[in-house]
Design a protein around this nucleic acid. Structure first.
Lengths: 225, 225
DNA sequence: TAGGAAAGTGAGTAATCACTCGCTTTTTGG
DNA sequence: CCAAAAAGCGAGTGATTACTCACTTTCCTA
């Protein structure tokens, strides 16, 4: 590894060099599709290049015509999600929602945020799956994810929490605990919908689930004494 | 696979047959240790039996003297966590805490629960890591985890929520959303402490973080209008 | 439409994989 | 104290791995 550049820098460069989908060959697109399918279901290490080739209906050599190694395939799948979707796209919506502070109440902001995140995950389920799976093992991916996306969201949220607390809309509470509560509820929504309890979750619409969650986040589950 | 028995049943039998640590050979113990270390850092598929043998200071043949396949090593690591720790141990504490209903307020119950969970994860960090990683890929493990631990916790919580709502201690809310809120906050605590933001989290003690989290769960983050 | 570049192929390669087996060493119980 | 059983060993197995390369086909453009 060249220690001159950080993973983030080389990732950014890597994405720059990535062709976008329009100028891909048909074969190349089917390689990507096959890789996404296999990585999402079996994981990176358990998927062989032979399998990917077969699933894509392509000779194994063709894969290495476009990607110089197997890890390069993973990066080609993960990097755009990380840099193009996760970072700007995710953050763009979040920024937009947060910036409409003046028009919206805190509850409305959070409601929009949650709904938006649920939609985003639903639309990119496999990519999210791969990203999280590989973040478990690959320190580089995990740290990039944390240092870009998480830190930025945290910064944005901190500002919002500070403003709204000062305005008397929020209770005076440790701001890290408030941030954690907001994020936990969001993670809980995604987790219950997609992993732990999809059937139970689907008994009511996403909008209803979001509304109930925001209500609890704002006012808690207890009756006041 | 023999379709006569469910994975849970064979898992139970498997654990029955497992020697406990006291009657393991020294070599066998170091194989387990090496496997836990490697699986936790690199994942199951990325760790080779040659590596495990080397890390354990043991011939490769010795591994297969004790475990008939590589997957058997994983099960020997995961199964006791799943059946001995996750199921009875986890649930024992949860039951105990929940059953002291008469003495404790709802807030106290949740506070004890969260503290207990934080301690449990801290004490079994690597095992939890492996369990979650492999639950991603192996349907069997994920479904066992969900159908035993999750469903039982859900059942216990549903009863508690019902009682306390009827007693007027909790607001009348959809009980699945309340359950999700309780679990989300717990997951958030563990996640922030161990994965996303350990430095920030450690600025205050576990007890203080738990207290703030329970306060927010009960009364929300908003000022009442 | 000629010709060079890019895309695609699949047999071949060295390395590594999980696992076996014949062997030696250690432990155990009568 | 001895014999059988258990534990330990490491070279060796065929299968599979990621990857290469000489070759053919397709595409682009001058």
């Amino acid at each position: 590894m060249d220690s001159g550049k950080s993973f983030e820098e080389s990732l950014l460069q890597f994405v720059e060099e990535l062709k976008d989908e329009s100028e891909m060959t048909e074969k190349q697109r089917s390689i990507m599709q096959a890789a996404i399918k296999l990585f999402a279901t079996k994981g990176f290490h358990a998927s062989s290049t032979a399998e990917i080739a077969k699933e894509a209906g392509v000779a194994e050599g063709t894969i290495f015509r476009h990607y110089k190694s197997k890890k390069d395939i993973l990066l080609a799948v993960v990097a755009p999600v990380l840099v193009k979707i996760a970072a700007p796209f995710i953050l763009r919506d979040v920024r937009e929602i947060f910036n409409r502070q003046k028009e919206l109440s805190f509850g409305e902001i959070i409601r929009e945020l949650y709904q938006n995140r649920l939609n985003l995950v639903a639309a990119n389920e496999k990519h999210v799956r791969i990203l999280l799976q590989e973040a478990f093992f690959h320190d580089e991916i995990r740290e990039t994810l944390l240092s870009t996306v998480f830190q930025e969201i945290k910064r944005l949220a901190a500002q919002l929490i500070k403003d709204r607390t000062r305005a008397g809309e929020l209770r005076p509470l440790p701001s890290d605990a408030v941030f954690r509560a907001i994020l936990s509820s969001m993670i809980g929504l995604v987790l219950f919908k997609h992993v732990t309890d999809p059937d139970e979750f689907a008994k009511r619409t996403d909008e209803e689930q979001v509304a109930a969650t925001v209500d609890i986040l704002l006012y808690g589950i207890a009756n006041r004494p």
